[in-house]
């Protein structure tokens, strides 16, 4: 069973629709820590403000995710869901992330190499330096385009599985064992995005 966590951070419809398209059954949208504990895969979508992730802790979902990961269930964070895997975000100081990866998420710089940098970063950008052993990105070639929409970004870490360049390099995908995250939106990234979802549901 795939549990898609609903913590009122934006619209889940597209994510659920894409998962249904690929697996047709066993996709449950939930706020229940108990459902998260028994799921063999957990998806944490999310667009909007990092502050929304506070609800995960308030509802007991943070603890449930921690337990679920510890017992080996697969986890995929999308957009803010990836950012939540880090220690936190300057977007909402005082709201802790899961801390699976080190570092804070930060806003894009206003200036990069002397030129003004627009934010949010919206549109199709390429995945680079894809780790050959990434299970999530299996079959996805360097330079493949995916759809982003965000103003905060995660730092580069040892577990970074792909980078994207916009005002410098940031973590577009992260993966360590059963813990995975993508800053882009697989549900909106056409064939490349469906490939990423398929890789995840087939784990």
């Amino acid at each position: 069973m795939i549990a898609v966590i609903d913590y009122k951070a934006g619209n889940l419809t597209s994510v659920v629709k894409a998962l249904h398209y690929l697996v047709a059954r066993d996709v449950v949208v939930t706020q229940s820590p108990d459902v998260v504990r028994i799921a063999d895969k957990v998806v944490l979508p999310g667009v909007g403000h990092f502050q929304a992730t506070q609800l995960l802790t308030d509802l007991g979902l943070t603890e449930a995710v921690r337990e679920s990961i510890a017992k080996g269930s697969w986890f995929l964070g999308i957009c803010v869901g990836l950012q939540w895997l880090f220690e936190g975000s300057t977007e909402a100081e005082g709201t802790n992330g899961l801390g699976a990866f080190a570092g804070m998420c930060e806003h894009f710089p206003a200036l990069y190499e002397g030129a003004e940098l627009k934010s949010p970063h919206v549109g199709w950008n390429s995945l680079e330096q894809i780790k050959p052993d990434s299970r999530l990105l299996r079959g996805v070639a360097d330079g493949s385009f995916v759809y982003f929409t965000h103003s905060w970004r995660a730092p580069l870490v040892a577990a970074t599985a792909a980078v994207t360049n916009y005002g410098g390099a940031f973590t577009a995908a992260v993966e360590r064992g059963n813990v995975m995250g993508v800053q882009f939106h697989p549900e909106k990234s056409a064939d490349v995005g469906l490939r990423v979802f398929r890789n995840f549901v087939e784990l």
């Binding site: 619209n11 419809t13 597209s14 629709k17 909106k188 469906l194």
Partner: peptide, 29 residues
């Protein structure tokens, strides 16, 4: 929206946050 896996925008007749919610629930991004 049923099988559209690229960003999808809908406009026209959205006057309230509830109108917008209905459009999002129907599959718009």
């Amino acid at each position: 929206a049923a099988r559209l896996f690229v960003p999808f925008t809908v406009g026209g007749g959205v006057r309230t946050a509830d109108d917008a919610a209905a459009v999002f629930n129907a599959g718009a991004d």
